[in-house]
Computed example of a mutant assay.
Amino acid sequence: MVQDIWLSFRRLPLWVQIWVAVILVPVNLMPLFFLDQPQGVLIAALAITGMALNLPIMIAARGMSEAMALPHILCWVPLVIVVVGLLSAAETLNPTYIRFLWLLLIVDVISLVFDVRDAAHWMRSRKPG
């Protein structure tokens, strides 16, 4: 099963593999370094849960699936709202935290653009007939 998931990942376009492995996953793990900041625990929970919920999907599909977009939408839309709210009061935040929040916001909004398309395609493919 792990090999099936790995091979499925490796069949993705190279730019997607780089996006996921070098940008998306690391940036969504970075909230662990900011747990002591305002809303830090909530941001970490939403960011990581959005990824962790993909594990059962990958196991069931024995690889990558467009259904993996659904946990991102479920968790990262609220995450984006929280981050935008924090950035609207940025003058009270640590400058390093502000830079991180902007990075997280940009990365997750880009991901959500792809996720909405993938989720719609996956749901259309599930309709009978």
Rank of each mutant, 00 (worst) to 15 (best):
M68Q: 15
A89L: 12
T96R: 10
S65P: 06
S88K: 10
N94F: 03
N54S: 11
L87N: 09
R62W: 00
N94P: 00
T92G: 13
R62C: 00
A61C: 07
T49I: 11
L74F: 13
L101V: 05
A90F: 11
A60P: 07
V82F: 05
S65V: 07
H72I: 00
L74N: 02
I57N: 11
I81T: 13
P95Q: 09
P71W: 07
P95N: 06
I73S: 01
C75P: 03
E66A: 09
I98N: 00
W102I: 13
T96N: 11
M58S: 08
M68A: 11
Y97E: 13
I98Q: 14
V82T: 11
L101T: 03
E91G: 13
V82P: 00
T96P: 00
M68T: 04
N54A: 06
I59G: 05
R99T: 12
L86I: 00
V80Y: 08
A60Y: 10
G50M: 10
L55F: 12
L87V: 01
V80W: 10
I98G: 09
M51Y: 12
C75G: 01
V83D: 00
T49E: 05
M68S: 14
L70E: 04
L53F: 14
V84W: 08
N94G: 01
I57G: 07
T96I: 12
I48C: 03
P95D: 07
T96Q: 14
G85I: 03
R99L: 12
A52H: 09
I59S: 06
S88H: 12
I81D: 02
V80G: 07
S88Y: 11
I57E: 06
H72D: 02
N54L: 04
S88G: 13
E91R: 15
E91A: 15
V83S: 03
P56C: 10
S65G: 06
A61D: 09
A69Q: 03
L53C: 10
W102Q: 10
L79Y: 00
G85Q: 04
I81S: 09
A67Q: 12
L79G: 00
M51I: 15
H72R: 14
M68V: 02
I98C: 12
I73G: 03
R99M: 08
W102E: 03
P95R: 08
N94E: 09
A67H: 05
V82I: 12
I98A: 04
A60V: 05
M68L: 12
L55W: 12
A90Y: 13
S65C: 04
P56L: 11
I73T: 02
L74S: 01
L87E: 09
E66W: 13
Y97W: 13
P78W: 03
G85V: 02
A67W: 13
P71E: 01
T92Q: 14
R62K: 15
G63M: 07
A60N: 07
V84A: 12
P71M: 02
L55E: 03
V83T: 01
L74H: 03
T92L: 14
C75D: 03
N94A: 06
L53W: 14
P95G: 02
I81H: 06
R99C: 00
E66G: 13
I48D: 00
L79T: 02
V83P: 04
F100R: 02
E91S: 14
H72P: 00
M64R: 14
A90T: 01
L87M: 04
I48F: 09
I59L: 14
I73P: 06
I57Q: 06
T96A: 15
